[in-house]
Amino acid sequence: MESRAKALGHGIHPMMIVFPLGLLATAVIFDILYLITYRAGFQISAAYTIGAGVIGGLLAAVFGFTDWRAIPSGTRAKRVGAIHGIGNVVVVLLFAVSWLARASATNWEPNALALICSFAGILLSGMTAWLGGELVERLGIGVSDNAGVNAPSSLSRRSTRRARA
């Protein structure tokens, strides 16, 4: 099925996710740099990029939810999409908690909770990004109205044998 929320003929959700994902990953890089150098500025940069990433993630979620609602019920694509979406809500919540933990500190200093939430969030985002790729690349969601909404996982043996043939 093709994306339901489009701009100039292209799905909005896939265009929007690059911004929050990039911002949140950059925040983790700033956190790592801060932990290595303790130079002032990295923790502030991390906090601002987390704030922007959370806002961007919420906006991307609106368009992702719109597309998910159009996937036929009872299909593998609907299940993968639900896990992808719920996982990304958890990612945004983890980063929001990280931001709140920093906001109460002097000079946006990240405490252990803030760092754990950010690092857990970026790890989970890698898994949810893979699921998003599975939706698009394997199942054809957002690409074609002839999507294979019940195609097997790209990790299954059956799909691996077919790829070698």
Rank of each mutant, 00 (worst) to 15 (best):
A25E: 11
A25W: 09
T26N: 11
T26E: 10
A27H: 09
A27P: 04
A27F: 04
A27D: 09
A27C: 06
V28F: 11
I29Y: 13
I29S: 12
I32S: 08
I32Y: 13
I32A: 14
I32D: 10
Y34H: 15
L35E: 15
I36F: 08
T37G: 07
T37Y: 10
T37W: 11
T37N: 12
T37S: 15
T37I: 04
R39Y: 10
A40R: 14
G41L: 07
F42P: 03
F42C: 06
F42Q: 06
S45K: 10
S45R: 09
A46Q: 12
A47T: 11
A47C: 06
T49V: 13
I50M: 15
I50T: 10
G51R: 11
G51A: 11
A52I: 06
A52N: 04
G53Q: 08
G53Y: 09
G53L: 04
V54E: 13
I55A: 15
I55R: 02
G56V: 03
G56T: 04
G56W: 08
G56K: 07
G57P: 08
G57R: 11
L58K: 02
F63W: 14
G64A: 07
F65S: 06
T66G: 00
T66M: 15
W68C: 00
W68D: 01
I71Y: 07
I71S: 04
I71E: 04
P72E: 15
P72F: 04
T75K: 05
T75A: 02
R76A: 06
A77H: 10
A77I: 02
K78P: 00
R79S: 13
R79N: 12
V80S: 03
V80K: 05
G81D: 11
G81I: 03
A82R: 15
A82Y: 10
A82C: 02
G85L: 13
G87F: 07
V89N: 02
V89C: 00
V90D: 07
V92S: 09
L94V: 01
F95R: 03
F95N: 13
A96Q: 08
V97H: 08
S98E: 07
S98A: 15
S98N: 05
W99N: 00
L100T: 08
L100C: 02
A101N: 12
A101S: 15
